[in-house]
Design a protein around this nucleic acid. Sequence first.
DNA 1: TCATCACGAGACAACTATGTCTCGTCTAGG
DNA 2: CCTAGACGAGACATAGTTGTCTCGTGATGA
Lengths: 189, 189
Amino acid sequence: MTTSDSMARTRDAILRAAATALRTHERAGMADIAAAAGVGRATLYRHFATRDDLLVELGRFAAEESIRVIDAAGIDGVGTEAALTRLTRALLTSGREFWVVSTHRPQLWPEEEEVGERLRVLAERGQREGVLRADVPAELLAAAHGALILGALTLAPLSELGVEDATDTIVRLYLQGARLTPTEASPPP
Amino acid sequence: MTTSDSMARTRDAILRAAATALRTHERAGMADIAAAAGVGRATLYRHFATRDDLLVELGRFAAEESIRVIDAAGIDGVGTEAALTRLTRALLTSGREFWVVSTHRPQLWPEEEEVGERLRVLAERGQREGVLRADVPAELLAAAHGALILGALTLAPLSELGVEDATDTIVRLYLQGARLTPTEASPPP
DNA sequence: TCATCACGAGACAACTATGTCTCGTCTAGG
DNA sequence: CCTAGACGAGACATAGTTGTCTCGTGATGA
């Protein structure tokens, strides 16, 4: 059983390395990925039949990782605004490694749709609880939230922030907007 | 002079076709691009020395197009909020064709930086005029704005909206945020 | 009418990537 | 100690891509 354990670890290493390789060189081939993973090229083919297959599995892997991180964030136990913060932080964390996957796979697997689904469910919950505005469909609220997260992972000024600062900035702007209003005084704990 | 005119038109057609080809097949090669442009492969090499060269010029071209559309929007003549709307609409319009370029060129040319610069300048103006919040740096406001625009071009629920609806949604969410407040009643003209 | 020139078609070599296969090594479980 | 199997190295055939070159055509401007 230790053998299959080690195979699974190698597989993970390959997939993570693939994400890294694709992040730095978009047309990375099997040789680049193998080099990034520190394994022989033959080993790649022992785990994935074709390059396409590897990319598909990478999408699945990244989505599963994100879902795992989201589940660990325990967003169901807290209020909507806190849940928004936790979900954002979770996706910023896992996204640092894997956001590139989304640019390489227009076609979505169920596992990948699931991530967007979580955003949508939370938006709906916020609307039901009267925390989020209901004059914009939950899908669009969720899309805007997702766009901000993606932006924080890819756009220069935001990606240079740490996860905590980026989370803070995104959630504040997402909830309160960019307009100056005499409304907000952040409630001290 | 008509000859160079026609060459310029062919060049434009190639670059636009390249954007299309890269949008549908990320690893599109010279043959794919030529086919998309409806020209012979040799013609590509008459205009661009290498594939890399073509991609660089595509980045420049897309940025110039965006800048042109922004300039035509006349954002300096109107208030900050209207300018925000016009700038968003301009970028959504030109972006429909060219957003893909940004995913293919991490390295930025001056012409490409210019687009982000316009967003930042407008954010700064909004802060100076007291329309936008000043507790978040203008770069981050601009990045969030850009992220929403990018999201509207790439994420399913937003990209399926028309340009007008997407502009509306983005600007409203960007300015007012997603939180439900008894604040806003959109002032009827 | 004639010369020019951008073009399409396609041949071509050099290179690169993909996928398969073999062999020798090292490790872990038996 | 011994064997199974995961691995690295690398040879190999095939396919695809890149970049160059040539030739014939058709349109433009003189």
